[in-house]
């Protein structure tokens, strides 16, 4: 990869003007959905049409997407679902108008939380709820089976919303935030309030501590083959090995793309061993895992990268920043 590659990539970037902080970005088919900090989504379709869709009456606190539906939670107490055609529907309204702190989508169902209460709306539109010991820090559906992981203070809870059995509790001291299942469903990993990750091997609840970060880890993503967990939280891309049955137990992470700024957002290419990394200084790098080669997808700017996503085929990479800059890089 060369400077010429970089020049061609930055030239192939379609600038988007979202008009405010970009809290997240997801792809609905090939339409990039920029989730703004307040009130609206900006849908940027492949035909270069842009539509602003007002969905919340206030701040947008959480977003999750399965490629067909983008689910958002707002400080207006609403859970909304929006598709690529800008059709928005109300999934739920919190009866007490509490903030919707977290959302997740999977198995045709939608999950959300307000404080300590966690809800699931099943594919059949049946609503279920459970309480956790403290406010949910993150939600994630398991890749197989209808199961939800809820991160909270002092551990995580595994809940089968369709089962009568009490949810299973995984204990580990401290405040657990973002949560993710490995693609094979064998491991659960949380990002903590402290600059570290915690993991459990679900077969035997064996603990895995993944430490050494410079800052709180805000972004986690699995490579396409599921062999690596890519994370921010350091001045480089950190990759934990999950290929073996012991996951990263007793192993060192790979460290690629050392940089000036802190890596804050990561997004793994959906097909190839390539990770997009967004830094606190606004830089976006594409990092090839085979040889560690890097290409600049966006040059540093005034504010941290706050959103990063690939479309399903990996031909488009969308990014957004805290100061409201955004773009779509066309790699096709």
């Amino acid at each position: 990869m060369t400077d010429a590659d970089t020049a061609s990539l930055t030239e192939r970037t379609r600038a988007i003007v979202p008009g405010g902080l970009v809290a997240a970005v997801h792809f609905l088919k090939d339409t990039a959905a920029f989730v703004l900090g307040e009130a609206a989504l900006l849908l940027a379709a492949p035909n270069r049409e842009q539509r602003r869709v007002a969905i919340h009456d206030g701040g947008i606190l959480a977003a999750a997407c399965d490629g067909q539906r983008l689910v958002t939670g707002g400080d207006d107490g609403k859970v909304m679902a929006t598709d690529a055609g800008a059709d928005s529907t109300i999934v739920a309204v919190d009866p007490k108008r509490r903030w919707i702190d977290q959302v997740a989508i999977g198995s045709g169902a939608v999950a959300w939380s307000a404080g300590r209460q966690v809800f699931v709306k099943t594919a059949k539109s049946e609503e279920r709820t459970t309480d956790v010991p403290s406010s949910a820090g993150g939600l994630a559906f398991a890749p197989k089976g209808f199961r939800l992981a809820i991160a909270h203070y002092n551990g995580a809870t595994l809940w089968f919303p369709n089962a009568a059995a009490a949810p299973e509790r995984l204990e580990w001291k401290g405040s657990h935030l973002a949560v993710t299942f490995s693609p094979d469903g064998k491991f659960l990993v949380t990002a903590m309030q402290e600059p570290m990750l915690h993991g459990w091997r679900l077969a035997d609840a064996k603990h895995m501590r993944m430490a050494g970060y410079a800052a709180k880890v805000r972004s986690l993503d699995w490579t396409a083959d599921g062999d690596w967990l890519a994370t921010g939280g350091s001045n480089q891309l950190i990759l934990w090995p999950f290929a073996g049955k012991d996951g990263p137990l007793g192993k060192m992470p790979r460290m690629l793309a050392p940089a000036q700024g802190l890596a804050v957002e990561v997004a793994c290419h959906p097909r190839q061993p390539v990770v997009a990394v967004g830094f606190a200084d606004g830089l976006v790098l594409l990092v090839r895992l085979d040889d560690g080669a890097e290409i600049v997808a966006r040059r540093p700017g005034a504010a941290p990268v706050s959103a990063l996503a690939w479309n399903a085929t990996g031909s488009l990479l969308a990014f957004g920043t805290e100061d409201g800059e955004a773009g779509i890089v066309d790699l096709g």
């Binding site: 902080l21 400080d75 403290s134």
Partner: peptide, 18 residues
């Protein structure tokens, strides 16, 4: 620390300027 405060301030900052 106040965990709820970290979460709430993060949410409020989505509406910076308001």
């Amino acid at each position: 620390v106040r965990g709820d405060l970290i979460r709430i301030i993060d949410g409020l900052m989505r509406r910076k300027g308001k």
